[in-house]
Amino acid sequence: MLRERYINLIVLALLLVVPAHAYVTGEPFTVTLATRAVIFALAGVGLNLALGQGGLVSFGHAAYFGVGGYVMGILASHAQNYEPILQVPFLIEGTNAMPVIWLVAIVMSALLALLVGALSLRTSGVYFIMVTLAFGQMLYYFTISWPAYGGEDGLSIYVRNQFPGLNTLDPIQFYGICFVLLCAALFLVDRINKSPFGLALNGAHQNEERVQTVGINVYRVRLVAFVISGAITGLAGALFADLNRFVSPTMFSWQISGEIMIFIILGGVGRLFGPVLGAALYILLEHFLGGLSEYWFIYLGAILLGVVLFAKGGIIGKLAKREVSHDG
């Protein structure tokens, strides 16, 4: 446990030092890369709660990522065009205030996760994987065929949204916002993992019958975890849209679901900092391998295959040399 804690601290320290150094030496591009890594990490932290702790292999988390993105896109585009979203029966206006957008993104993706989770959790195992994948794909096709918000072309937002007291267009300040949110999500997930609820969730992962016999409603525990998981990933989607100032149906694509899973498996399934390390590593690979060869996905595929076949427990698993612990 000690070793894993040290690794986590080193990862956190690097996430603070590297962008700060890049900012001081005048490399805003590196800050943007780091921001991408932190946002992807946040999406991964969300999925890790369902996948790592709960053993719920959701292959459709792009749905929540995309809903978060489109919440930002829709609210900000209405604010930018001064058109209210809804006039009857009551007035709803667009907004460019980040805290409001985050809140709406969290609520909307949680609602979607509630719906998808309630249906998919009736199944298990390989059915669950396919069903979550299919629901993600359903939203992808829906956004493509619904023309109101750009359809296939997506939606551009010209100015980054505002946060009271900060200049969000300054890369390092926007990075700071994302970093703080990631830390908040890590803290929340850590508390959940150590709570009776988290122990029940993990217990159901290891032995469903036993947890049921103790009198815990496994379906409900899993559904709540799935909803929280979707909400965190939705928040990441809103940030990602703000980083690019652009949303498109690709945010819903099954490749995004796969990538979020890759972050977790690279770092270590079920480990608090697994997705953080995995996302950072993914961004580094994308940057350096992408610079080496146009066909860098071949190398990524080979690395992923190697990790799955030979390095159980991911990078943190290899470094910490200990199974995931649940006692904290």
Binding site: F59, M261, V269, L304, V308
Partner: peptide
């Protein structure tokens, strides 16, 4: 989970 990820890696390759 491991089957999904390994075969996903095969898709990339």
């Amino acid at each position: 989970l491991e089957q999904v990820l390994a075969t996903f890696a095969l898709i990339l390759i």
